[in-house]
Each structure stands twice: as C-alpha cells, then as structure tokens.
Design a protein around this nucleic acid. Structure first.
Length: 717
DNA sequence: GCGATCAGCT
DNA sequence: CACAGCTGATCGC
C-alpha cells in the first residue's frame, strides 16, 4: 500500500484496516488463488464482471434471484453458485456471513462479515444500496454498529446529489400516465407510453404503473426472460410480450436519449419507435438517478411535436444525505468507498476525497488513530515504523479505551485545550477539505472548533450538507404547477418507512443458521496470476476524444460527449494557479495570442452555447455570459454553480461562499506515474509471497494480512 | 484457439 | 469521471 507520494506524512493516510478474510466481494475480475470464496451483491454487470460460463475459481455466494440470473443469463456453472437467504447467518471459511436487503435492484443485498475468534472483526459491504431508515431496525445491521469498516456505495457521494423519494417519483409517473390515458381516451386516440429501464432494476416503477393504471406492460423477450427468472413473470399477467396488448411499453435504457453528462433526447429514434408500433403520439419516461434540472414546476420534460419525454429522478442508490445517515447510524471505524475510486487505491486521492464527507460520523477513536499515525509518520525521529504504529493502533482499537501511547511522539498531536492555530494544523485541515476552501475559512473553522482538526472538518461538511439541504427544501417548497405533491424533501428516507421493506428483517437471527463447510475450491490451481495494473487510461483516450470532438459540429444528431465536455479548458488569461495542468482541447485552441480579448470572447461564446444547451432555456444568455465570466470560462463549474444557485434563492449571499467553485482543482494534479510504479513494485513482491503461502497452507493463513485492495469490489471501469 | 479486455454503440 | 450492458474487434497467453 502506498503512502502519499509527493508529501509523505503530510496527509492522514487512510490506511485500510487489515483483515484476514479470504473473500472477494463483487470482484470477479480480480479473482486469484488468495481467495476462497466469492460474493456477488447483485446482478449488475459492473459487479459481476468476470463471471461467465468458464468461471472455475470458487463458490459464488448470492441471493436466490441473483443465483438464478447467474445460471440462466451468464451460464455460470450451477455447482459453483450458492444461494443464500436474506437475513440468515451462514458460516464460510470460519467467518460468519449475513446478507441483508440493500434496497437496490431485485436480489440486491449488503453483506455483513464477522471474523472468527474472540475479538471478531466486523465488516459491512453495502454492494449498491439505497439507504432507508428501516435499516436502522434490522437486527443484523444493528450488530454492526461500530464495525471495523464500511465498504460503501459512494455513487452519489456529493452534496449536489439530492433526489426525491422513490414514492414521489412513482407517483409522478403513475399520475402522468393516468392523465395521458384519460386525455387520449377522451380524444379517441392512442398514445404510446415508453418507460426506459435497464436489464435488472427499477421494476417497481413498472409494477406500480401496472397496478395503479390497471394495465399490462409490454416487454421484449429478453426482459421477459429476466423478469420471469426474478419471479415477476408468469400468469399474474402484468408483463406481456404482445405489443398490442397494452400502450405501456418498456424500452431499453439510452434509447430515448443519452443521459450523461446531461440529458439529450433522441426524438428521432423515439418517433421511429412510435411509428413502428402504429402510434401517432408518444410519451416517454426516463427514470434516472440524477436530477438534471431543478425546475420549480417539477420534473423536467422535453417536448417535440407529438413526442414528450419526462425525466424522472428515480434512484436506486443512496443520496448524499442518505449516505451520511447510514454512516452516522453504523458509526464504523472507517468508510471505504467502493465507487468513484481509481483502481482500488484506497488511499488515493479519490478515496480520501470521498472519505472526507464522513469525517465526524465515523468512530472518533479510529479517527484519532488515523491522526496519530499521520503524526507519527511525520516526525522524523519516530522510532516506530509505519507498520508498528499501525499494529499498535489496531491493538488499541480492539481494546476498550483509547489512550495515547506515551513513549512516542505524542507531543505532536494537536492539543485541544490550546487554541493556538498552527500552520501545520491549517495544512492538515486543508488536506481534508475541498480545494476551493480558502485560508480564511480554514482559519475560521479551526478557531470555532478550538483547534480540533477533525471537528473542524466535521463542522465544515455538516455545514455544507445543511446548505444543500436548505437549498433543496426551499426549492421544493415552491408551488408546483404540476400535479406532483412534494412533501418535505431531505427526509426522503423518512417517507420511505411506508415503503414496506419485507418483514423478514424481523426474523430472529439464530433462527435457521446454516453451515457451509468450505473447503477451498480451486479447479485450476495453476492459473496465472495476472497482477497487471491497467495503465490508468491516460494513454489510449486519444482515439475516443478525437472522435467526439469531431462530432461536435452542427448540433445535429451527434452531440459532444463527456470527454469533449470536461476536457474543456478555461480560456481566460486570468486563470490562476490551476491553469497549469489543465488539459487543453485542441479545438479550443483557436489561438492567436495577439488578440487575447477576442479569444476570450470567442471561447466564452462556445461555452455560453453549451451552457445554454445544458440548462435548456432556464437561463438567459446574459446570465450565462456573466456566469461564465465568473467561472473563467469553465462550463462545468458554471453548471454546478447554476444548479446550486437555482436551488438556493433564499440563502443570503454571505452563505454562498461555500458553493463549490473549482471542481477543476479536483481533476488536475494526478499522481505521476513514476510514483505509482515505484510504490507498486514495492508492494508486489510481498503480496506474492502471501499468495503462495495462502494457497499452500490454507489452514494457517489466517494470520496473513490480505491486502485490502484485493478485497474490494472497486474497479468501476 | 481461447479467454480477457476494449471500443463503440445502444 | 461515470445510473448498464451488449457485441464485435483486438489483445495476449
């Protein structure tokens, strides 16, 4: 595991808690001889990637619906699939394992692991999940309060992600369809309703529409197959493959339009489908996790001729608030993000950035250990190695009481009783906070917390959260012209208590314990270890980028892709320090330096057009221009600011200082490759020894510390 | 020749 | 940097 390459010791490195399991969760690509059991949290390709007909490496534990899909869709050898019941404890390789509902897609679970031994380690792996308050009363989860680590689905781990409860969105879809049906019925015409979904997930929308609009739902054969496997098919007759049986059809994801980075409808395709199926009007629904636009009138709608597309924020991932609620509830010693981190580097930039959001919600004691470790590493005269310190800390974590070790550099710890703000503390805190926070704010935070860095960071994120929450509430309070009734948001999890998560969570836990005696299954023991780190993608992007830039023209069918979009450089000359590392889109470089102001105007104009396209008329050209001036031409930041502002008309300007202003800084300053290579070459030999030992002496391998990065489901892309 | 991975597209 | 996922091409053993 690597430390911060450039400035060793300056950052409180969030080193993963070591543990001894030989499990992998959602990481089938990274299977190796070091693991003896595999867990799949749910059936989405980014989690099951690596599984297939030729899977031989070991048993795969998952829920029954997932198990059926594995066998029928992926043709994984059935003898390697172990289906486990939700909320039923099993024992695998000495560890206790429980799956609890994840409120994600059908069959999705979180896994709870408890190590054997007198001082058990406890780990929670959320898979993908959407938090609901009902989880607080799940007795299995309750046993994991204070867990050693929480592997968390951080998909929407940013305050800008807020969305309504699923009920609210469901209501919207159902009501809209009802209305369409009424109107069209009165007019004696037929209107095609299209609902976009992906292969597994968001079924609830379909079921609710069927139930409450009293109609069937048309699906293609592939979707039907999956629905059948999931138990939704059959005679009950909600779903049909007969297109003429109903006007409500399910359609593939991304057919009605591209959804990222902002929604661009594909009316051409939509019309094609409409005509194909013999209709003259069509209404589409795109249930997306993102609030693309925050309009006062409700959810975004795109119209063209007889076509209409509703963007419905319907998320099966936790919102920012929900994530924080969950962390607050579980109060783990550590949060380990599983989404949005690069290649499993747990103390990499991204992971640390994500972990920042939970400062103050995780276990205090563990936090202090983090700092202790950081400070120990920092002091040149520290006689203990990193590992020594870590070991020491961990031992203490297992004990009851936190006490500072007395014989090493304790004196360097910040002293809470002394309100003296040192440069070091500011540095430390600034490492924890987003880059746009200025020195004054850092000073202020430290002052008001009496010089406690952790508390300062915590206060900051608390404040930021409140900011967004308030913005959202004030937005939702505005009268709506549409028929949706928005209850108080921010408490979306509250409203979901009526959302009836199955009652099995109340089952007594000891009820039906199963035992799986796991002898390591290793069909092909001579598998080659492919420890190849993929060169982090910086190299081979050129092709893609070239293509996308080429398609930018004429705003016609092909629209600029994300690469193009975020590759945009701020063109202004006044760009400060952050300008140095920004990638420059060649197209942007229409660059005679002679007439600099013309350049600025020109490039801003491009940006203005883009910005206007994104906000889709919610903003005047003048506002767009002035906003872009503020962001020095950075469209991305402008979009962020725009949506922050629009949500937030009621907040006094003084409070707006905490609106993110420079996401750019987050994107630059990548690690340089030299360091990565160096560090991994340090780590690899050691790890390989471990693998050998693991595969030779399985019984004895419990005291081997498996690198946690191997344990992770990370690797998204 | 095979499986794993990637590019491209839906 | 990112709500999924299929497919055919390409890489690499």
């Amino acid at each position: 595991l690597r430390r911060h390459p450039a400035r060793p010791g300056l950052r409180a490195t969030h080193r993963p808690h070591p543990h001894n399991s030989r499990f992998l969760v959602d990481a089938f690509r990274h299977a190796g001889d070091f693991s003896v059991a595999y867990f799949l949290s749910h059936f989405h390709s980014d989690h099951y990637a690596g599984l297939g007909p030729s899977w031989r490496r070991g048993l795969v534990f998952c829920t029954a619906p997932t198990a059926r899909l594995l066998a029928s869709v992926l043709s994984v050898p059935p003898e390697l699939i172990v289906s486990i019941d939700i909320d039923v404890r099993i024992t695998v390789d000495g560890w206790s394992v429980v799956a609890v509902d994840a409120n994600h897609c059908p069959g999705a679970v979180q896994f709870l692991f408890t190590s054997p031994g007198p001082n058990p380690e406890r780990y929670v792996h959320t898979g993908d999940f959407r938090y609901t308050h009902s989880m607080r009363s799940n007795p299995n989860l309750l046993e994991f309060v204070g867990a050693d680590a929480l592997f968390l689905d951080t998909t929407y781990c940013n305050p800008k992600f807020t969305f309504p409860s699923q009920e609210e969105s469901l209501e919207y879809v159902v009501n809209t369809i009802k209305q369409v049906k009424e109107e069209s019925g009165a007019a004696g015409e037929r209107v095609l309703c299209l609902i976009a979904t992906y292969v597994v997930g968001k079924e609830r929308i379909l079921l609710e529409v069927a139930r409450r609009c009293r109609c069937m739902i048309h699906v293609d054969s592939r979707k039907m197959e999956i629905l059948t496997v999931l138990g939704f098919g059959g005679e009950k007759g909600v779903f049909t493959e007969d297109a003429s049986a109903t006007d409500v059809h399910v359609i593939g994801w991304n057919i009605l339009g591209e959804t990222w980075p902002y929604f661009r409808p594909n009316f051409v395709k939509m019309k094609e489908i409409m005509v194909e199926r013999g209709y003259t009007k069509a209404v589409g629904f795109v249930p997306t996790g993102w609030m693309y636009e925050t309009k006062k009138e409700g959810f975004a709608v795109r119209v063209k001729d007889s076509l209409k597309i509703h963007l419905v924020p319907y998320s099966e991932h936790s919102s920012y608030d929900e994530l924080r609620d969950y962390v607050k509830f579980l109060h783990p010693k550590r949060v380990i993000p599983t989404v949005g981190v690069d290649g499993g580097k747990l103390d990499g930039k991204e992971a640390i950035a994500l972990q920042k959001h939970f400062v103050g919600l995780v276990d205090e004691t563990a936090n202090k250990h983090e700092f202790l470790m950081a400070f120990n590493r920092r002091s040149a005269h520290a006689s203990l190695s990193h590992e020594d310190v870590l070991a020491k800390c961990c031992r203490e974590q297992d004990g009851e009481e936190f006490a500072l070790p007395e014989n090493n550099s304790v004196s360097e710890l910040p002293d809470n009783s002394e309100i003296k703000i040192t440069e070091g503390m500011k540095k430390e805190l600034s490492d924890f906070l987003p880059s746009w926070v200025n020195q004054d704010q850092i000073q202020g935070l430290l002052m008001s917390s009496g010089g406690d860095v952790v508390q300062s960071a915590s206060a900051f994120f608390e404040r930021e959260r409140d900011f967004f929450e308030e913005a959202n509430v004030s937005n939702n309070e505005k009268p709506k012209s549409v028929e949706i009734r928005t209850s108080d948001h921010g408490s979306s999890a509250d409203t979901s208590s009526q959302q009836e998560v199955p009652s099995f969570s109340q089952k007594p836990m000891e009820h039906s314990a199963k035992l799986v005696n796991l002898t390591p299954v290793r069909m092909n023991s001579n598998q080659t270890k492919k420890e190849r780190k993929r060169g982090s993608s910086t190299v081979n992007k050129s092709k893609k980028k070239g293509k996308s830039t080429a398609s930018t023209e004429a705003g016609g069918r092909k629209q600029p892709t994300i690469t193009n979009y975020f590759g945009r450089a701020p063109a202004a000359a006044s760009k400060s320090e952050s300008a140095n590392k920004v990638t420059v889109d060649p197209h942007q470089n229409n660059g005679e330096n002679n007439n600099q102001s013309m350049d600025i105007v020109e490039s801003h104009k491009q940006g203005v057009d883009q910005l206007l396209q994104i906000v889709d008329g919610s903003m005047s050209r003048e506002s767009a221009i002035s906003l872009l001036e503020k962001t020095k031409g950075d469209v991305n930041v402008a979009v962020d600011m725009f949506y922050s502002k629009i949500q937030n008309n009621n907040v006094p300007d003084s409070d707006k200082s905490i609106v993110p202003q420079n996401t750019q800084n987050e994107m630059i300053d990548k690690y340089d490759n030299t360091n990565m290579v160096h560090n991994s070459s340090q780590a690899t030999p050691k790890m390989q020894n471990l693998y050998v030992q693991t595969s030779v002496a399985q019984a004895d391998s419990m005291n081997i510390s498996l690198p946690v990065e191997k344990y992770l489901p990370i690797e998204h892309g």
